[in-house]
Each structure stands twice: as structure tokens, then as C-alpha cells.
Nucleic acid binder design. Sequence first.
DNA 1: GGATTTTCGATGACATGTCAACGACAGGTA
DNA 2: TACCTGTCGTTGACATGTCATCGAAAATCC
Lengths: 149, 149
Amino acid sequence: MATPWLNADEEQTWRAFRRLLVTLPARLDRDLVRDSGLSPADYEVLSTLSEKPDRRWALKDLAAKMEWSRSRLSHHTTRMQARGLVAREPDPQDARGCLLRLTDDGFGVLERAAPHHVVSVRARFLDHLDADELALLRALSARIADLPD
Amino acid sequence: MATPWLNADEEQTWRAFRRLLVTLPARLDRDLVRDSGLSPADYEVLSTLSEKPDRRWALKDLAAKMEWSRSRLSHHTTRMQARGLVAREPDPQDARGCLLRLTDDGFGVLERAAPHHVVSVRARFLDHLDADELALLRALSARIADLPD
DNA sequence: GGATTTTCGATGACATGTCAACGACAGGTA
DNA sequence: TACCTGTCGTTGACATGTCATCGAAAATCC
């Protein structure tokens, strides 16, 4: 079993990485709100909704795809609905469920937000990695995120 | 200036890394609550407080060290105070301020929590990196976190 | 078919974070 | 000394997430 302490190398790596875990999302989120008036949650909902050709998802499927609880997605889309970004429709396949639809307004907001967001991800992250680092980080991220829960 | 789109490599790296940004903290936080009954915020407050020999910090200094707003720290320590983990004392240097003190109870909770937490960080993260990856990740994290805000 | 169990989305209570405002005090300056 | 001006911690309003629970509808079982 793992020992309950860290050596100096591990300690410093963990500290540095933990700082990255906090600062990078904070900066990207700040940029997003400033540039587009969207919270990171808003952006994720809009962009995931836009992945389907008809821009419609059953709430439960969208929640599963995003790894959100249905409760969270229900609350959040209620607020987004009030802003006209998404709409609810009855699900013809399942009378318990509902379909979330990306409205034209929501799609427009997303289309204007995306380029700014990409620039932000570059400026704050991608542009500071070389090709080797990019490849290693990708492999490492997938490996760790794919560990059993 | 950066282009407003990503190539396939960048896109996949960013997706994988973003997934890591969400899943890793979620798992560590879940372990922490299960093992010790502490939220990640609790743990950070306790461990930072314990860094000073007398276990006392002025609220403003602790907030700066942790990169939290004073408001957030004030709210949070009010709740922790009700649980007996920390205490407030007048600051002899500055009558506006207050000193936050780690109580004996709080220190005990931290001491019992720390080994579990380290095991969790190992099992979910460190143990899956080799020495090269560790070094690269540390350099890369510091580089990006140290970018101007 | 009819009864039981499960799933779906909504909801309310609660925990936790942000932001703007505030009173109290410190520190500089005339 | 008597002002400004800024800082310190608190507070209240609000946004957002979790959790337990609910009614309705589907799925399963006999």
C-alpha cells in the first residue's frame, strides 16, 4: 500500500499542480464572463447541446454526458431558460422526461463566445506547452482521469 | 496573436486535461469528506494554519497566503469556529484585525486527516506518474500558474 | 392485466461562494 | 491635533451546487 507521506519531489510537484488546478480554471472562468457574460457552466451546457445536429438532448442524457447530476442540470437550465438560452420541450419518447433545446439566441451567444474562449485557452495554457509536453500531458491526463472512481 | 481555433492535437489535449481538472479534485474531495469529515476548504484552512509555530494567523495574512478573499475566509472560519476547529482572538498589533488560531481539537482533526489524504493523493494521482512525468508536470504547472493574471 | 419497482425531472432545504456595502480603526499629512 | 484616505473584518443579498424527497410515468415481474 502507498505510504502516508510524500518525498520532497512529490511534495513540490503536488503543490505546483494543485496551484494550477485552482488558478487556471479561475482565469479561464474570469475571461469567459468578461468576454461573453457566460459562466463556465453556461458555456459547457451550450457547447454540449450544440453537439447534436438538432441541438436537442433529453435532460438525463445531457446530464450523463456532462457528468452532472440531473438536479444540477435541472436547476441550471431553469435559470438559462429564463435568459432565453435554452428551451424545454416534451419528450415524445418518454412522458416523464423533457428535451432541452438550444435556442437560436443561445446558439448565437455560443458562436460569439467560442473564439474568445479559444484565444483565452491558448493565451493562458496551450501556447506555453511545446509538442512533447502537449503529448505527455494528454496521455497523463487520460490515464489518471480514466482510473476507476 | 493566437488563432481562434485549435488543431486536433491541441483539442484532444485540452479535452483530456479539462476532464482531469474536474475529476481529480472531485475524487480527492470525496475521499476527504469520507475519511475525515472535512471539506477541501476546511482542510486547506487547517493545514495552512498549522504551518505557523504558534498556529495563529491574522485573517488578512491567511487569506493572502491561501489566495482567498477575506470575505470567503471570514464566512468559512465562522462556520469552522462553530465546530470548534478554529478560534478568533483579538490582534494585539491591530485593533481592526483578528487572529485565527488552530484549536487543539482542530489540530487533532488535521493530524488524523493528513495520512488518509496523502494516501488518497497517491492512489488517485502520484502513483500513476513516473519520475520524468513528475518532473515535467511540476515544471509545466509552475510555468503556467506563474503567468501574469 | 395488475402490482411492484425503478427512473425521470422538479423542488425545497441547506451549504458554500461572490460581491458590494459598512463601521471601526490605522496611517499619512497639514 | 484634526483631518483625509485606505485597510480590516463582517455582513446581507444573491448565485450556484448538493442532497433528500416527491409525483408521474415507464419497466419489470408474476
